[in-house]
């Protein structure tokens, strides 16, 4: 009697494990489908355009920084004091009068 009960219990337990195995297969199957969808959903061209658009904005900001440094430099060049221009013009006059051509 007790042995029969044990065998029955063993069978139930095996069914329980079998049920878990089925669930596991379903999970893996579901994951495979999801993976397929991820790959299929991926519209390469559109995604690339989007990423490049974002990157372009980033690089444009960087380029503007570089250009503004040059702009500052150009402004500095243009604001050279008159006394320095005077010094340079004196040098030119001296050379025009003395340079051995």
């Amino acid at each position: 009697m007790s042995l029969t009960a044990l065998l029955l219990e063993e069978k139930k337990a095996m069914l329980y494990v079998e049920e878990a195995r089925k669930k596991a297969q379903e999970k893996v199957q579901k994951a495979r489908k999801e993976a397929e969808q991820i790959i299929a959903r991926f519209d390469e061209d559109e995604k690339i355009k989007e990423i490049l658009r974002e990157y372009e904005e980033e690089v444009r900001a960087e380029a503007e920084k570089i250009f503004s440094q040059y702009r500052k430099r150009a402004e500095k060049v243009k604001s050279i004091p008159e006394s320095v221009i005077e010094e340079a013009s004196e040098f030119i006059v001296r050379e025009v009068l003395t340079y051995e051509l």
């Binding site: 690089v59 960087e62 380029a63 570089i66 440094q69 040059y70 702009r71 150009a74």
Partner: peptide
């Protein structure tokens, strides 16, 4: 883009 910024900047200076 960076090349152009540098070139334009250098030309401006």
């Amino acid at each position: 883009l960076l090349g152009k910024a540098m070139m334009d900047g250098r030309r401006m200076v």
